[in-house]
């Protein structure tokens, strides 16, 4: 099989070219302040290629923060439904394997009996170009959940750094193959692999807990005081859920004038206080620790019951973004410890 390489400058040029095409959506790493975000690009957007991990995940390219799901005209004769804009092909560059690993998880949810064509069509049309990891921090734990710093799951193309200036491009899917063939000019250079280029191995991120043991504990300990202890510091700001590649909760709201309206699906979060509040005023999860318990239990127990997979990829973004010091890895490790104690 042919080997493909791409330099940083060629990648930048390719993304800029694609982003100039109005028939396409392109997302890439962009520096805002001191941080890098996976953001929607136009032909002029400056890419940032020198970063460890973006604050947000690639989620928002495929599951937008605000998405029109219905348009309608309000006429004196009644309501008339209007056309929605078509879903454009898209390219997402700059996530890591822990981003891409969320794709099959989210797909399970959005195709659970009722097919959410907004998500699924975008998934059909997206080319996900992932960067294998060369760095890690204390919040990374992909290997504890079956992931890997150079894992291919969910990606179409995986880029492995071979020199200071370039990557070797590994074709993961048919879509990825087609993308490279279409833009072959950009992938033609041969880069001689340099020595001393850092490469992260699975063993560099040790396995820190057993997710099946964590699930067992969660199933039996809904009322355990540990929940309040580990999560009562949560401010219910929901930042953790917004940066998470697998958090998918949403709200549906209408916005209308006298003549027309649009109904949108918007990101929402189980950690927000009003998320589950009934019209009567009753709230089944009124305390912040109850909401955080839902967040962890959903990912590490309920999702497994529904789709046979933990809904967390170990990217550590929620811990990095939390200013209240709520750290998912610490919590899950603590649960694992408790569970081990119980086994004895």
């Amino acid at each position: 099989m042919a080997e493909y390489y791409i330099t940083q400058s060629k990648m930048t040029a390719l993304l800029k070219e694609l982003a100039s095409d109005s028939g396409m959506e392109v997302f890439g790493p962009v520096k805002k302040g001191n941080d890098v975000f996976i953001s929607k690009m136009d032909g002029k957007t400056e890419l940032c290629l020198d970063y460890f991990i973006s604050v947000n995940s690639i989620k928002e390219a495929i599951f937008p923060r605000f998405e029109p799901i219905l348009k309608y005209k309000l006429r004196s004769e009644g309501v008339e439904l209007a056309e929605l804009p078509p879903i454009k092909p898209l390219v997402v560059f700059g996530g890591h394997p822990c981003d891409a690993a969320s794709i099959p998880l989210m797909k399970d949810l959005f195709s659970w009996d009722y097919k959410d064509h907004f998500y699924l069509q975008r998934l059909e049309k997206v080319v996900i170009i992932t960067l294998a990891c060369v760095e890690k921090d204390e919040n990374c734990f992909c290997t504890s959940l079956g992931g890997s710093p150079h894992g291919e799951t969910g990606s179409d193309i995986l880029l492995e750094r071979v020199s200071k200036d370039g990557w070797q491009a590994k074709i993961v899917s048919e879509k990825g193959k087609k993308f490279i063939e279409t833009h072959l000019d950009f992938f033609r250079d041969t880069i001689t692999p340099e020595k001393g280029i850092p490469k992260l191995q699975d063993k560099d991120i040790p396995v820190m807990f057993q997710s099946d043991r964590v699930k067992k504990w969660i199933e039996k300990n809904f009322d355990h005081p540990l929940w309040e202890e580990v999560a009562s510091n949560c401010w219910s700001c929901a930042a953790c859920t917004y940066v998470c590649p697998t958090c998918h909760c949403f709200d549906i709201t209408d916005d209308a004038t006298m003549w027309e309206g649009v109904r949108t699906k918007n990101w929402d979060a189980c950690t927000l206080p009003f998320f589950t509040k009934h019209a009567s005023g009753h709230n089944p999860r009124s305390q912040s620790y109850e909401r955080y318990r839902q967040r962890i239990s959903h990912k590490y127990s309920y999702y497994i019951d529904l789709f046979n997979h933990v809904s967390c990829t170990g990217c550590g973004r929620c811990s990095r973004v939390c200013k209240a010091g709520v750290n998912i890895l610490d919590i899950v490790k603590r649960i694992d410890e408790e569970s081990k104690k119980g086994e004895k």
Binding site: W112, D113, Y114, C249, D251, D268, Q294, S301, L306
Partner: peptide
């Protein structure tokens, strides 16, 4: 059961009681 719902389709994530989705 009468939990708050938005989608009714098992996706919006708010009606669950444990692993029991009220809508599904």
């Amino acid at each position: 059961l009468e939990n708050k719902m938005k989608c009714g389709l098992g996706k919006c994530g708010r009606c669950n009681v444990g692993n029991f989705y009220v809508c599904k």
